[in-house]
């Protein structure tokens, strides 16, 4: 379960606090829930996902993720919590010096999985996103859409409890986007909480679901 109570966030710029980009967010997303995260550009969608991925911590209010109060957790607790949250970044964030295979294997290696299992899982995952023939390719040798699929594979390969995706279809064609939605819905059906930020109204129309709508850093619609 994800619970936000009066959560606010401002980025620190130099030494002075910048303007609040998220304000007074209060909502609950139950375990296994599904949410679209909608809103105009600059509304704070990526910032909210960053918060849920613990890449930034709330500067106001209380946030609890998978029943762990983020404010009380130690650094080590936060690291372990991050392993249970998969994230597809808007800009992919692949490690440029590692092959696609090793990028996808990274979360499994961090979790200490045996290498044999890693080989099987990663190969299957990359084959599923249509990159079975590009295991050894570096990110720079892949197209934007292929990089996005590597990023998706990395986010889901560890079977996270929560999956956050920031514009995951931005670089995909219709067919790939539909395949991705099938994967995410299947994971959601198996119990993963899924939150997808997108501008793609057609996609939302084809896959109706509950949504959170942000405007100027405030939640204007939830549930």
């Amino acid at each position: 379960m994800i619970r936000l109570e009066g959560v606010g966030l401002h980025y620190v710029q130099g030494t002075s606090p910048g303007p609040e980009v998220l304000r007074d967010l209060t909502t609950v997303i139950p375990e296994g829930g599904f949410r679209w995260l909608l809103g105009p550009s600059g509304a704070g969608k990526s910032s909210l996902l960053r918060l849920l991925h613990l890449a930034v911590l709330p500067t106001r209010g209380r946030l609890s993720l998978l029943d762990v109060g983020v404010g009380d957790a130690t650094r080590h607790d936060l690291a372990l919590l991050r392993r249970r949250i998969g994230m597809v970044f808007q800009d992919f964030r692949l490690l440029p010096h590692l092959a696609a295979f090793d990028n996808v294997a990274l979360p499994l290696r961090l979790a200490g999985r045996p290498e044999g299992q890693i080989r099987a899982d990663v190969t299957e995952m990359l084959r599923w996103v249509g990159l079975g023939g590009k295991l050894e390719a570096r990110p720079a040798q892949l197209s934007g859409g292929e990089q996005q699929r590597v990023a998706i594979a990395r986010a889901v390969v560890g079977r996270p409890h929560v999956l956050l995706a920031d514009e995951p279809t931005g670089n995909l064609d219709e067919v790939q986007a539909e395949r991705l939605m099938m994967l995410l819905k299947e994971m959601n059906r198996l119990g993963t909480t899924v939150i997808i930020a997108t501008h793609n109204d057609a996609l939302v129309a084809r896959h109706p679901g509950q949504s959170l709508r942000l405007e100027h850093g405030r939640l204007v619609e939830h549930g």
């Binding site: 890449a55 392993r83 490690l95 979790a111």
Partner: peptide, 11 residues
């Protein structure tokens, strides 16, 4: 930052 985001501990 990426590895940290994937849950690598400081240690």
């Amino acid at each position: 930052e990426i590895v940290h985001g994937l849950g690598a501990t400081d240690g």
